[in-house]
Computed example of a mutant assay.
Amino acid sequence: MVVTVHDLRSKADQLLDALDVYDQFVKEWPYEPGEVPDRIEGYLAELDSDTSGSGSSPEVTFATEVKRLYYEACEAEATYLQQARERGQPEWSQIVTEVEPVRKAARGVHTAGYEIDSETDELDYRLPRELCPAHLVSMNGGSSPIIYEDRVTQYQAVADCFSLSPEIVYHPGSGHDVSPSETFTESRVVYADIDEAAMTHLKRAGYEAVGTDATKYELETDADVIIFRNAGLLEEAIVAGNLQSGGWVLANDHLESAQHLARMDSLKLVGVVPDVWTGSSAPVETRNLGAYLSQLDPDQEHSKQFREPAQKPVDSAGQSCTSPAAIEEEDEKEATLGDTRNALNPGRTTGGSESGVPTTKGTPLDLYIFRDVS
């Protein structure tokens, strides 16, 4: 189905109308029987008649309807972005403007029912979860920052292999995940997410976190490293607006972030860290990258140039990594691009317990390492 700008505005308007009614619903919560304003009661009654037999109260049905409209709008936006990518090299600043109505409405959902508590004077969910759209759409189950040890190990492998010591690390779409801070301990790490509750929790724990739509947000100083992890963002616009010249981008492909980045002329794939490995440190694959690229972007030739790191890379075990620049010519000879034009393979095999290097090239949870070559 083709999605137009008109369709995006229509989805956004439907969601904003529901949020307008929900705001009135929250203001006077809790209600005594018979005291619900007519407009809200009419909206709830209509929803209840449409879902008769569901067993849910009108209030729960209302919150669920807001969530449904939210996901419908997000799906329309995702389809529109995919259409833009398929057209090739779109003007991303224009695309950001065109999807702005949906992005604005979506952010409204992430604050719906998440407000200043009058008793504690702190931000919190005002209503029970089943009545609170902000809680229903949050991807974060807990209230504390989360550190994923496997991600820390992957980031450390990248930092060691390419001798990275970034001043600024930017993690848009982070949710509660603060794993980068465990690796880049001397860096300023900035987290940004549309989930206001998640960012509030991070700020309370002492992290630099911004509750915002990362698609339009720009750092005051460009980042040396940007990380995309299960974020599903408009990566092209974020990289264009926030990455230092010669900077690095780390991404997995669970929500196709690595695929989108691989199609950017300004970026070059220089390495891959597998999602599984043996031993305490993760390997960094810098050979046969054409095989990875042919899966991320099978319709393109992969001859983009990149800058060689200023220092010889060293892996997380203290051993030399092969420089991507030194092996690029060998990669082009060894990679059989025609045999790997398929979707990302969810399977995984390795080259043995000693190497831990995958022989199956590319899975959605591998960490792809890109460098800016603009």
Rank of each mutant, 00 (worst) to 15 (best):
T4K: 13
T4S: 15
V5E: 14
D7W: 13
A12S: 11
D13W: 02
Q14T: 14
L19H: 00
D20R: 13
V21A: 10
V21C: 08
K27V: 14
E28I: 01
Y31V: 06
Y31S: 00
E32H: 06
E35A: 15
I40R: 03
E41A: 14
T51A: 12
T51N: 14
G53P: 07
G53L: 08
S54L: 07
S54H: 03
S56G: 07
S56W: 07
P58Q: 04
A73G: 04
A76K: 11
A76W: 00
Q83F: 06
Q83L: 02
A84S: 13
R85I: 07
E86Y: 01
Q94V: 15
I95K: 03
V102C: 09
G108Q: 08
V109D: 10
T111Q: 15
L123C: 00
D124Y: 03
Y125S: 09
P128T: 02
H135Q: 12
V137W: 05
M139V: 04
N140A: 02
G141A: 10
S143E: 09
S144V: 09
S144L: 06
I146P: 00
Q156I: 02
A159R: 13
C161V: 13
L164T: 01
L164H: 09
V169L: 03
H171R: 00
H176T: 12
D177T: 09
V178M: 03
S179M: 08
P180M: 01
E182R: 15
E182I: 04
T183R: 09
S187T: 06
V189Y: 01
V189D: 10
V190G: 04
M199Q: 13
M199V: 07
M199G: 03
T200D: 13
T200I: 02
A205E: 08
A205Q: 03
A205R: 10
A209L: 02
A209V: 01
A214M: 11
T215G: 06
Y217G: 00
E218K: 14
E220I: 05
D222R: 15
A223L: 04
L233S: 06
E236P: 01
A237E: 14
V239E: 05
S245A: 11
G246L: 00
N252E: 12
H254A: 14
A258F: 05
Q259W: 02
M264A: 02
D265T: 12
S266I: 11
V270M: 11
V270Y: 05
V270I: 12
V273T: 01
P274Y: 02
S280N: 08
S281K: 14
S281L: 05
P283C: 03
V284F: 03
T286K: 09
L289R: 08
L289P: 00
G290Q: 07
L293D: 01
Q295S: 09
P298L: 04
D299H: 06
E301W: 09
H302S: 07
E308F: 00
P309M: 04
P309K: 01
A310I: 15
A310C: 07
A310R: 12
Q311G: 02
K312M: 15
C321K: 04
P324L: 07
A325T: 04
E332S: 01
K333P: 03
E334V: 08
G338W: 14
T340V: 15
T340Y: 15
A343T: 15
G352N: 08
G352Y: 00
S353L: 15
S355T: 13
G356V: 00
K361H: 11
P364M: 13
L365P: 03
